[in-house]
Design a protein around this nucleic acid. Structure first.
Lengths: 139, 139
DNA sequence: TCCTAACTTGGACTTTGTCTAAGTCAACAC
DNA sequence: GTGTTGACTTAGACAAAGTCCAAGTTAGGA
């Protein structure tokens, strides 16, 4: 993650305590946190950090391509620090747990020209849904 | 759509004016409307219909499998009446236009067992992103 | 050490959606 | 047709997620 801080500085970022803390939270646990969860963890380290700053910083990290935004359920967006390795998501329909997964085929290749309607198609996200082992066991 | 009304009645639905109007709005234009857009169009036909009823009715249609919910951007959910034919979505990154598309391969087949982590995987949604012809021309 | 543009803050505000209590009405029985 | 009843609808309050703004603070260069 020191890589990340270096890259950000090269982009002209001011390295404030708040931004450092947000970056550390995302780096610390490889999970998919909501903005409010990031804020809660950031507050543990820097009690006076505001919600607005967390939102701003997350938005900037997304702009810079350092973090991915995942909108899966129409509720809060989740932030995925694993932005430098292509992957898709597998989500438990019951508890919402998210795993990164790696399909064997590129979904873009499966979209024929006739199905592109003149769009310049630039990417594809796949959301797999199912029941995680814990939720299977619970039923 | 009279099919739809018939199916709904068979499910024990009371056929109220409000529900009929919501069903007609979704049937009338094969687009992907937000709940508020559905409400706006419903009000044109039945001025006293309330937002709560539109939300309730859309939720019921989704439960019954007659309409799909599409959450693509963390903003408002969109409702897709084309629930009886498997398809995926292609979305313009600029204007948000959504098209139904039909990839040539089943995305489920591209997820190896080793990448399922014990989940009972039940489905996959692909969101293709790109620039629509209008937005390409505008740049 | 100073300066200043960039950053942060708290709170107001917006959007999207949910909930509730009270009133209305579709469908069935007669 | 008329009455009955539980399902449905309504308006408005509420909640969650996110944005915006004016005022205060500060990182980093001069």
């Amino acid at each position: 993650m020191s890589d990340l801080l270096t890259r950000l500085r090269e982009q002209g970022w001011r390295l404030t305590a708040q931004r450092r803390v947000v970056a550390e939270v995302l780096d610390g646990e490889h999970v998919h946190l909501t903005a409010d969860e990031v804020h809660a963890r950031a507050v543990d380290r820097l009690p006076e950090i505001s919600r607005a700053t967390v939102y701003n910083t997350l938005g900037e990290l997304v702009q810079l391509g350092e973090v991915l935004e995942v909108s899966t359920d129409g509720r809060a967006k989740r932030y995925d620090p694993n932005a430098h390795h292509a992957h898709q998501h597998l989500i438990c329909s019951v508890c919402g747990t998210i795993r990164d997964v790696h399909p064997s085929a590129d979904p873009l290749a499966a979209l024929p020209d006739a199905e592109r309607f003149g769009f310049a198609v630039s990417g594809a996200e796949i959301t797999y849904r199912g029941l995680c082992p814990d939720c299977r066991a619970a039923t």
